[in-house]
Deep mutational scan, measured.
Amino acid sequence: MAAAAAAGAGPEMVRGQVFDVGPRYTNLSYIGEGAYGMVCSAYDNVNKVRVAIKKISPFEHQTYCQRTLREIKILLRFRHENIIGINDIIRAPTIEQMKDVYIVQDLMETDLYKLLKTQHLSNDHICYFLYQILRGLKYIHSANVLHRDLKPSNLLLNTTCDLKICDFGLARVADPDHDHTGFLTEYVATRWYRAPEIMLNSKGYTKSIDIWSVGCILAEMLSNRPIFPGKHYLDQLNHILGILGSPSQEDLNCIINLKARNYLLSLPHKNKVPWNRLFPNADSKALDLLDKMLTFNPHKRIEVEQALAHPYLEQYYDPSDEPIAEAPFKFDMELDDLPKEKLKELIFEETARFQPGYRS
């Protein structure tokens, strides 16, 4: 834990890192770190609560700039109880001085990944967590956004079992017609939660990839272990087919990539493993919904509104309290091709509203 900075004593240090967030945020305490930044909790002297502050230093890398800009653009436009918001952003007053960006968010005690390492969940908890994931996802999908990296560590939890989806750095506007060349190379989302079509096709992607990830998360809540822990690309596919069985001819016809289709045709026939054999203690309604989410063919996979209306979630289902976005989200430009200098300018502009004396 960093010592509390005395008023006016300059930035606090946390594990050798400068955290320049005073005077409003003090009493910093280390939480963890990701690929390009550290997260601390801090005391907000204005709202009198502890908050989470993520320090991001992305400006050396085009990919990190892209992810940072995506996350900020999306989260500043989203407003939903099951999606983490941005409360404040701290950065230098000029673009030349801006080396880091500090993002202030609600402090959540833990995440689903940490929880599943230590606790076996009751059916009631599984049901409530799944409902909140789908409630947040309904809003995301209504904005025409794909999260693309749903996994237990991106689901934040607090002691009252509130759940918030975080990390929109890989999110995209849904565009089933656009052929994202190089899709697989830039697709760094965790393999275990990846839909089979991501490994088999490169053309376009749809909201059904997020539903697949939610199915993987439900299976993990039922058993405290990942359902498809593939060691590499082909191993991942083999794990999936080992449980779902061989795809039907109709399902194979959806695979545009001939090499991928021929690979699947070359494999020995596998039978589907019954879900109640894998999860003998699970609620039968939970397994019915799991089956509809972990469907090989993305066109037959359940959609988020149908999933919310499934009998497993009937005690929570309330369409009048499951809000959607006001308007579909649009990125003005494809960020993939922009140089990091341009992305830095866009991050600077996007964060201006939090600067003292800002006038829109």
Results as ranks from 00 to 15, higher is better:
Ala35Asp: 12
Trp212Lys: 10
Gly230Trp: 06
Tyr64Met: 15
Ala219Lys: 11
Met293Ile: 14
Arg70Glu: 09
Ile217Cys: 04
Phe183Leu: 14
Gly34Cys: 03
Arg24Val: 02
Ser208Cys: 09
Pro356Thr: 13
His125Gln: 14
Pro58Val: 15
Leu156His: 03
Lys259Thr: 07
Gln236Asp: 07
Pro311Trp: 00
Gln355Pro: 04
Phe279Ala: 07
Gly215Trp: 02
Ser57His: 07
Glu12Pro: 00
Arg77Trp: 11
Arg79Trp: 07
Arg135His: 08
Thr206Phe: 12
Phe168Thr: 06
Pro226Met: 01
Leu278Trp: 04
Ser320Glu: 10
Thr159Cys: 12
His120Gly: 07
Ile165Ser: 00
Pro176Met: 05
His310Asp: 01
Ser202Met: 08
His147Glu: 04
Glu303Trp: 06
Ala260Gln: 05
Glu197Asn: 07
Leu146Asp: 03
Asp210Asn: 12
Arg225Asn: 07
Val18Gly: 15
Trp192Lys: 05
Ile324Ser: 09
Ala327Cys: 00
Ala325Arg: 09
Glu349Gln: 05
Ala219Trp: 11
Ala3Glu: 06
Pro93Leu: 09
Phe59Pro: 15
Lys330Ala: 02
Thr351Trp: 08
Cys216Ala: 11
Ile324His: 04
Ser320Phe: 08
Lys48Gly: 13
Leu264Ser: 00
Arg172Ser: 03
Gln249Glu: 02
Asp291Glu: 12
Gln306Ala: 04
Phe168Trp: 03
Ile72Lys: 06
Ser246Tyr: 01
Lys300Ser: 05
Tyr193Asp: 04
Glu220Ile: 06
Leu137Trp: 01
Leu116Tyr: 01
Leu76Ile: 01
Ser360Lys: 12
Gly10Val: 15
Asn87Ile: 14
Ser320Ala: 05
Thr94Ile: 12
Gln17Tyr: 02
Trp275Ser: 07
Leu287Gly: 03
Ala9Lys: 09
Phe228Cys: 01
Tyr113Gln: 09
Pro226Ser: 12
Gly85Glu: 11
Arg261Ser: 10
Pro328Arg: 04
Arg91Ala: 08
Asn27Ala: 08
Lys203Ile: 14
Asp283His: 08
Ala286Gly: 05
Arg148Ala: 03
Leu76Gly: 11
Ala92Ser: 14
Lys48Pro: 11
Cys166Tyr: 10
Leu150Ser: 12
Arg67Gly: 12
Ile165Val: 07
Arg172Val: 01
Arg79Lys: 12
Leu308Glu: 01
Ile53Glu: 08
Thr94Lys: 11
Lys114Leu: 08
Cys254Tyr: 13
Phe78Gly: 06
Ala327Leu: 12
Arg359Asn: 09
Asn201Thr: 09
Arg135Val: 02
Lys292Ala: 09
Ala327Gln: 01
Leu150Gln: 14
Glu186Trp: 01
Tyr128Phe: 15
Ser202Leu: 09
Pro328Ile: 07
Glu305Met: 02
Thr295Ile: 08
Lys344Asn: 14
Ala35Arg: 12
Gln355His: 13
Cys127Met: 12
Tyr43Ser: 13
Glu326Asn: 02
His178Tyr: 12
Phe279Lys: 06
Ser57Glu: 11
Ile255Thr: 06
Ile165Tyr: 04
Ala5Met: 11
Ser320Ile: 07
His125Val: 00
Asn154Cys: 03
Ile198Cys: 12
Leu338Thr: 08
Phe348Ile: 14
Leu184Phe: 10
Pro319Val: 12
Arg79Glu: 06
Gly85Asn: 06
Ser57Val: 13
Val273Ala: 07
Asp179Val: 15
Arg24Tyr: 01
Ile140Gly: 07
Asp235Thr: 02
Leu335Gly: 10
Ile31Cys: 15
Lys270Glu: 00
Gly34Ser: 02
Asp124Ala: 14
Thr190Ala: 11
Arg148Trp: 08
Ala174Ile: 01
Lys292Met: 15
Cys166Ile: 07
Arg67Val: 14
Glu349Met: 06
Tyr233Thr: 10
Tyr102Ser: 04
Leu115Thr: 05
Arg277Asp: 10
His269Gln: 11
Tyr139His: 00
Glu345Gly: 00
Arg261Cys: 08
Leu267Trp: 02
Ala282Phe: 08
Phe59Val: 14
Ser266Val: 06
Ser320Thr: 13
Glu250Val: 12
Ser29Pro: 03
Pro319Gln: 15
Thr185His: 05
Tyr358Val: 12
Tyr312Ser: 00
His310Glu: 09
Leu313Lys: 01
Pro319Phe: 05
Ser29Val: 04
Pro311Leu: 10
Lys340Met: 15
Ile211Trp: 07
Ala195His: 03
Ile243Met: 03
Phe296Trp: 02
Cys40Glu: 15
Thr295Arg: 08
Glu326Leu: 06
Leu267Thr: 02
Glu109Thr: 04
Phe168Met: 11
Leu234Pro: 05
Gln105Ile: 09
Ile256Cys: 07
Glu314Lys: 13
Gly169Lys: 03
Asn144Arg: 10
Ser41Trp: 11
Ala309Val: 07
Leu244Lys: 02
Ala171Lys: 02
Pro229His: 14
Phe296Ser: 09
Asn238Lys: 13
Pro268Lys: 05
Asn297Lys: 11
Asn45Gly: 13
Tyr317Phe: 15
Pro274Asn: 03
Pro176Asn: 07
Phe354His: 08
Lys99Ala: 11
Ala5Leu: 14
Val18Gln: 06
Ser284Ala: 09
Thr190Lys: 03
Gly37Val: 15
Thr295Ala: 00
Gln249Met: 05
Arg50Ile: 13
Pro319Asp: 04
Tyr205Phe: 14
Ser223Leu: 08
Phe348His: 08
Ser246Cys: 13
Arg67Lys: 15
Leu155Asp: 06
Lys330Gln: 08
Tyr43Asn: 15
Val214Ala: 05
Met293Cys: 04
Ser202Tyr: 12
Phe354Thr: 07
Leu267Val: 10
Tyr312Pro: 01
Cys161Ser: 15
Asn276His: 11
Ala9Leu: 05
His178Lys: 10
Ser57Pro: 15
Glu349Arg: 11
Lys73Asp: 12
Asn201Glu: 12
Ser223Thr: 14
Thr159Val: 11
Pro311Tyr: 04
Ile227Asn: 13
Gly230Met: 02
Arg67Tyr: 13
Gly32Arg: 08
Ile103Asp: 05
Arg50Met: 15
Phe78Asn: 11
Leu170Asp: 06
Met333Ser: 08
Gly22Asp: 05
Glu349Ile: 06
Glu33Val: 12
Ala42Lys: 00
Lys54Arg: 06
Asp88Glu: 14
Ala52Asn: 05
Phe331Lys: 01
Gly22Trp: 06
Leu134His: 01
Gly169Phe: 07
Asp167Cys: 03
Arg359Gly: 13
Gly8Cys: 11
Arg194Val: 09
Phe59Tyr: 14
Ala195Tyr: 00
Lys330Met: 15
Ile324Glu: 04
Phe329Cys: 04
Lys292Tyr: 06
Ala260Met: 00
Pro58His: 15
Thr63Gln: 11
Thr295His: 05
Met13Arg: 13
Asp167Gly: 02
Pro226Glu: 04
Ala286Arg: 00
Ile240Trp: 02
Thr181Glu: 13
Arg301Gly: 00
Ser284Leu: 12
Arg261Pro: 10
His178Cys: 09
Asn276Ala: 13
Gln132Asp: 01
Arg172Gln: 09
His141Ala: 07
Asn224His: 07
Ala286His: 03
Leu156Asp: 08
Val214Asp: 07
Glu350Leu: 06
Pro58Ser: 15
Leu244Pro: 08
Asp175Glu: 13
Asn144Asp: 00
Lys342Phe: 01
Asn238Glu: 08
Leu346Phe: 00
Pro58Arg: 15
Leu76Arg: 05
Ser246Gly: 02
Gln306Glu: 05
Ser320His: 06
Cys216Asp: 04
Pro229Thr: 14
Asn253Cys: 03
Leu150His: 05
Val145Trp: 06
Lys151Arg: 01
Ala9Gln: 10
Ser208Arg: 11
Gly230Pro: 03
Thr160Trp: 05
Pro226Gly: 06
Leu107Thr: 06
Phe78Ser: 13
Thr181Met: 09
Ile256Tyr: 04
Pro196Ala: 05
Leu130Cys: 12
Leu278Gln: 15
Asn271Met: 11
Asp336Pro: 07
Ala42Asp: 00
Ser223Asp: 08
Arg24Pro: 03
His125Ala: 10
Ile217Arg: 02
Tyr312Trp: 07
Lys114Ala: 05
His80Tyr: 12
Arg77Val: 01
Tyr139Pro: 12
Ile211Gly: 07
Ile90Phe: 14
Ile255Glu: 07
Val21Pro: 00
Lys164Pro: 01
Leu137Phe: 00
Leu343Trp: 05
Tyr233Asp: 12
Lys207Pro: 09
Ala35Phe: 05
Glu81His: 07
Tyr43Lys: 11
Thr68Val: 12
Leu163Asn: 04
Lys207Arg: 11
His141Thr: 06
Leu134Thr: 05
Glu81Phe: 02
Ala325Gln: 06
Asp111His: 02
Met13Thr: 14
Phe129Lys: 07
Thr110Tyr: 07
Gln62Leu: 15
Val18Lys: 08
Lys342Pro: 10
Asn47Tyr: 15
Ala52Ser: 14
Pro229Gln: 06
Ile165Phe: 15
